[in-house]
């Protein structure tokens, strides 16, 4: 009997070790809501019901504006707060925003279980990151963003990074979408994928939801006022990622100029 305690010592130590390993550090978390608000210049952007002036010599009624964001990440602050990956892929679509009220409400994405702290920015890649762009809709369940067959180009083995569709009035006759007034830009390919960082202080507080607004100005995706360059609806009313002058311009403008932190 006197050997019994010695026999139990290794078991006791092992069980203590296992118990210690099992005890996860309690991490306080909160949530983040990113509200994407579309505009066309200074006007709230919504589909179908409203015409927007374009460069003073055309008007357009939009039908669809959507894009993918990859590697959506909160940037950390020094050593205190580590970066937090929010999502590998999200689809932002203004297609169902069809009134001014809905435009002001915006398109919201919500993320939970984020470690509390003060983050220093939001980083994302415009489009579908190359490793995800090598997948196809059948790799996903229907509710996942990349299961959208209408956003996948099977012939090019690529997702469509952005879709911009609408009907224009180019001859000022009050009718939208007559011949050569139909606008479709379906753009994107892996070589155009790049990341963008938006510096912004984001406080994630325990058991509460922080909300930030991201403005998306479709007009800035189509024109660069500083350089005087723009998409000429009369010259190129459509592009299905065949014209580099169009797809390079729009993807770059969308990534670098159109998306900004709002109020």
């Amino acid at each position: 009997m006197k050997h019994t305690p010695l026999f139990f010592i290794p078991i006791l130590l092992l069980s203590l070790f296992i118990t210690a390993c099992d005890q996860k550090e309690e991490i306080s978390t909160g949530s983040l809501e990113i509200v994407f608000k579309g505009t066309f210049g200074n006007e709230p952007l919504y589909m179908f019901g409203r015409s927007y002036d374009y460069r003073g010599d055309a008007a357009v009624k939009w039908q669809l504006f959507q894009f993918f964001l990859s590697d959506l990440e909160l940037l950390g602050s020094g050593n205190a707060v580590k970066p937090h990956m929010l999502s590998a892929i999200e689809s932002v679509s203004f297609g169902d925003i069809q009134s001014e009220e809905e435009a002001l409400e915006g398109y919201a994405l919500r993320f939970n279980d984020i470690e509390t702290g003060t983050y220093s920015g939001l980083q994302f890649g415009l489009g579908v990151a190359p490793e995800l762009n090598a997948t196809q809709p059948s790799d996903y369940t229907p509710s996942e963003p990349l299961a959208q067959v209408s956003s996948y180009w099977e012939a090019a083995s690529s997702y469509i990074y952005t879709k911009i569709e609408g009907n224009a009035d180019l001859d000022n006759d009050g009718q939208f979408g007559e011949d050569e007034e139909k606008l479709t830009y379906h753009l994107g390919a892996s070589e155009l994928f790049q990341k963008r960082t938006l510096p912004v202080t984001i406080d994630i507080r325990e058991n509460s939801t922080t909300s930030i607004v991201v403005n998306v100005d479709l007009l800035k995706a189509l024109e660069n006022t500083a350089e005087g360059t723009f998409i000429d609806f009369r010259q190129t009313p459509r592009d299905h990622h065949k014209n580099p002058d169009v797809y390079n311009f729009v993807i770059t403008q969308l990534r670098e100029s159109a998306i900004s932190i709002g109020n």
């Binding site: 009907n167 939208f176 979408g177 011949d179 050569e180």
Partner: peptide, 15 residues
């Protein structure tokens, strides 16, 4: 033919 006119005709329907 490009279809008939209405404002919300999808822009891919064109002559």
């Amino acid at each position: 033919s490009g279809g008939k006119y209405s404002e919300n005709v999808h822009p891919n329907v064109r002559r």
